[in-house]
Design a protein around this nucleic acid. Structure first.
Lengths: 119, 119
DNA sequence: AAAAACCATGGTCCATTGTCAATGGTTTTG
DNA sequence: CAAAACCATTGACAATGGACCATGGTTTTT
């Protein structure tokens, strides 16, 4: 599919998609037609972009994602050791979730206090 | 207390503390002694810095925190309406936590796959 | 009393994660 | 077929969240 459709379907802007592509997070082929320079994104890219969005929300940088996604794709059959890195990132995300939950509690308390003050 | 102690106790760098102070997130008095220009941070600042750290981990910007912290402090007795904003931020953080959990699941799956491949 | 450690201020610099604009082609639509 | 919509590439620009450095003063330690 072309970038416009991918942008539409994934909810990610064209510019962001191109940015991720430059970083090597998603891949595209040159169009099979030789008359244009349009790129061809695989179906899979929609899913990859969703993962990227979740990862960004989880506070994981693109630099880390480059490593992680390569592991994800290599997971069937690779033997090089990225396990430590993976474990580290899992820990980081878990920590961030906990911090987020603490902060959420603070926000909820504030909301309750605000409502009481309005009495 | 002075900035060094605050940095030590909160685990936040001096530079970051000064940055937050410029943004109005924490307040300090000028030292009571007139012979120096050192600032005096209240005990409470340690707690505020913890909240700031959690908030940053939760993906909440400092600009938003400025608004939120003012509401937190004003929560006892204020009547101006920041409720909508608060509710919006709560929703945002909840969404980010969910995305983080989805991503965490992806990471864990990758880890399992990696372990199986290593057979 | 020196040296080492600390502080304030001001300014510069940095990575990250994109957005926006310009230019020049291609396709689709009316 | 002309206009509108789409695409690629390049390059400038921007916001966020600090780190780092220089300068000059103050405390604390030795």
């Amino acid at each position: 599919m072309r970038i416009g459709e991918l942008a539409e379907r994934s909810g990610v802007s064209r510019d962001a998609i191109r940015f991720y592509e430059r970083q090597g997070l998603i891949a595209a082929q040159k169009s099979e037609s030789q008359s244009n320079t349009y790129k061809n994104y695989p179906e899979e890219a929609v899913f990859t972009l969703e993962v990227i969005r979740d990862a960004q929300a989880a506070g994981v940088s693109i630099a880390d994602l480059i490593v992680l996604l390569s592991q994800y794709h290599a997971a069937d059959g690779a033997d090089f050791d990225g396990e430590d890195f993976l474990i580290e990132k899992i820990q980081e995300v878990e920590n961030r979730i906990e911090a987020s939950q603490r902060f959420l509690e603070t926000l909820r308390q504030t909301l309750r206090a605000l409502k009481n003050a309005a009495h």
